[in-house]
């Protein structure tokens, strides 16, 4: 949502939003533009901070349908404007065209915000969990998002290659100790460190490992940091 902080709304759209809210509260049966779009955004808002709720393709398509409808209605009205010689009702038609235009823009904006926010969350997944999407998350993404993730992954890797292979995702906290004591929370099996040493990570055992090895395992929840 950060990218959409910026331009101030103009008067008309402010009035529109307030009306929207009012109608939602008072007369939920009245059909207003932008309801589905608000649903989209609310869905994301409710989701916990680092999670991605399933892709709401249906609502997205519904919003697009609405935009189409608005666009066609506007087309019709523009046609009417041009055909009609009588300028008395021009003002009204112009107002309704303007109103519909704002509604359309708002819908578009909600759509962009929805997708952008999801992309941001995906990005933080890449930084926290590495280049492979876990299966549970994979099922909540749309195809395009998966493509985007893969290409982001490639770009990031290429960038890090330029840096002599410095892996930016590893050193995320200031290092205090070279070795840390960890307790194993899940049965992980054999784990091979960068030095080539294989350690058997069984549940409830405790080990001493270099910090760089453990960081991503701690983030995944396999290990837990303990103090001596």
């Amino acid at each position: 949502m950060r990218a959409l902080i910026g331009p101030k709304e103009n008067q008309a759209s402010q009035v529109y939003y307030r009306t929207l809210w009012w109608t939602d509260v008072q007369r939920p049966s009245l059909k207003m533009y932008g309801r589905r779009a608000t649903d989209l955004i609310r869905g994301l808002d409710r989701a916990a901070e680092n999670s991605i709720p399933p892709y709401n393709g249906e609502t997205v398509r519904a919003v697009c349908e609405e935009i189409k409808d608005i666009f066609e209605a506007n087309q019709q009205d523009t046609g009417r404007l041009q055909s009609q010689a009588d300028t008395s009702s021009h003002q009204n038609i112009l107002h309704s065209i303007h109103f519909r235009h704002i509604a359309m823009e708002r819908n578009k904006r909600c759509l962009v915000a929805y997708h952008y926010n999801r992309a941001e969350r995906l990005r933080s997944i890449r930084w926290n969990l590495g280049g492979i999407i876990p299966r549970e998350i994979r099922s909540t993404l749309s195809e395009k998002e998966v493509e985007w993730f893969n290409s982001y992954n490639t770009e990031l890797t290429n960038y890090m290659m330029e840096l002599d292979g410095l892996n930016l995702t590893v050193h995320q906290r200031p290092p205090k100790e070279h070795f840390i004591h960890v307790r194993v929370l899940l049965d992980y099996g054999d784990y091979e460190t960068e030095d080539g040493e294989t350690i058997h990570l069984k549940k409830y055992t405790r080990h001493v490992l270099p910090r760089t090895e453990c960081e991503h395992l701690i983030r995944q929840g396999v290990l837990e940091h303990v103090h001596v």
């Binding site: 069984k202 055992t205 405790r206």
Partner: peptide, 11 residues
């Protein structure tokens, strides 16, 4: 810990 001896502890 004082001498940085690596260990694995099992109960």
């Amino acid at each position: 810990n004082c001498d940085y001896i690596l260990y694995s502890l099992t109960i």
